[in-house]
């Protein structure tokens, strides 16, 4: 890296991939893959998201990414869905089966599966 311009160019190229713009139609799914998440079973959840997105042909508008720990240990595995112009949705205590339902209803159908979200799931 020899100049600030180079850095700015990468930022400009990447920004829309991390922060979803309203109206872009892009969806970013992040799966908590820190030690805590992996221990609680995040890997099969991540794998199922990747599989489902591939299978349903959603790869051009849905990005599935791993991320670190968001701090809510007892709710792991945690998945967050970001979509421009809409509130982020935090799914907790995830399983591969729940993934299928979320891809069908939320990612494809646009309706979050509220009963799996952090504000609806008790301990």
């Amino acid at each position: 890296m020899k100049s600030l311009e180079e850095l700015a160019a990468i930022k400009a190229r990447m920004q829309d991939k991390v922060i979803m713009r309203e109206g872009s139609g892009q969806i970013r799914v992040v799966v908590g893959m820190a030690t805590c998440g992996i221990a609680a079973g995040a890997r099969p959840v991540l794998d199922r998201f990747v599989e489902d997105v591939e299978k349903e042909g959603l790869a051009d508008r849905v990005a599935v990414k791993q991320t670190g720990c968001i701090g809510i240990c007892q709710y792991e595995p945690v998945v967050e869905v970001h979509e421009g112009g809409k509130d982020k949705v935090t799914y907790v205590k995830m399983t591969a089966e729940k993934v299928d339902e979320i891809v069908e209803k939320h990612i494809k159908g646009g309706q979050p599966v509220l009963e799996y979200t952090i504000t609806h799931v008790g301990d």
Partner: peptide, 14 residues
């Protein structure tokens, strides 16, 4: 933490 992909330097730069 919980926002970017920790294995992507590009996302950190973003």
């Amino acid at each position: 933490c919980g926002v970017i992909d920790p294995e992507s330097i590009d996302e950190y730069i973003a």
